[in-house]
Amino acid sequence: MWKRLLKYWGEKKMENRIDKKFQALQAAKRQALIPFVVAGDPNPEATKDIVLAMVDGGADIIELGIPYADPLADGTIIQAAAQRSLAAGTCIQTVLELAAAIRQDTEIPLILLVYFNSIFKYGQARFIKNIVAAGVDGIIVPDLPLEERTELAALAKHYGINMIPLAAPTSGERIARIVNEAQGFVYCVSSMGVTGMRQTFHNKLQDFMDEVKEATALPRAIGFGISGPESIKKLKHLAEGFIVGSAIVKQMESSKRVEEMREKVYDFVLSLRKALDQA
C-alpha cells in the first residue's frame, strides 16, 4: 500500500512533520495512530500532560481541538469537552501557548481541528502565521468544504501548513477535487453523522476508501466513530492512518484527577497501538 506514496513524496520538499512522519511509518511498515483531544479539556494545564501520555502510548500524530461552542460536525461527547474547555477559559492564545509548550518536549506532528469562524474572526493570515510560530504542522477545518477553502488553503500552503481535507462516503465525484492540491493526508469520514463512538460504519466504506486511493497518492486516515481496539482491528486493512477522538475524550470524562486521566489515556492509546501493530 505504500509504493504509491513515493510518487507524492518524490515531488515535495520534506519539511512538514506530518509528511516526514508518514514517510518514516512507511519505512517501518506501520500505520499512523492519530488521537484527538480538545485543548483545554478539562483545563489548559492538563492538556500537555494528556498529549505527552498519548505520545508515550504510541501516538504518531496529535490532533488538538480548538474548543468551539457550536461545533456542527461534533457529537455530544466532543461538544461537552469543548464546553468544559471554554468554561476553563481556553481561547486561541491558550491553544497557541499549549502547542508551543508541547513542541518544546516533542517533535510529534501537531494538527489543529478548528471551526472556520474561529479562524475567520482571528484573521486567516494572522492565524496561520501564529500557528506556524507555535510549531503546528496542519489544520483540519470541518466546516470548510472545497467550495469555500481557496483563500485559507493558499495561505496554509504558503506558510507550510498542511491543510487536511475531509472526504465522506457521499462525496462521490467530488473526491478528485477534494484531494486536488491537498497536503498531508486525506481525512476519510467513516460514517455519516457527527463525531462519536459507533458499532457500525458506512456500508460502502470499502468502496469509498478505494475511490480515495484512486484519486490521490496521499495517505488516507479514517476518522469518526472509532470506539476502541476492536474498531481498529475491523478497519485496519482500509487505511494508512486512524483518528480516534470521542473514545479518548470519554476515557477522560470518567476521571476526576488529571493524573488518573493521564493514565487512562496512556493505557487506551497503548491498546489502540497494539491493535494496530498486531499482524
Binding site: 467550495e147 457521499t170 462525496s171 477534494i178
Partner: peptide
C-alpha cells in the same frame, strides 16, 4: 456561502 461539513455537501 456553504460553510458545512463535507458530509452534507452532496445533499
Amino acid at each position: 456561502g456553504q460553510y458545512v461539513p463535507e458530509t452534507v455537501m452532496n445533499a
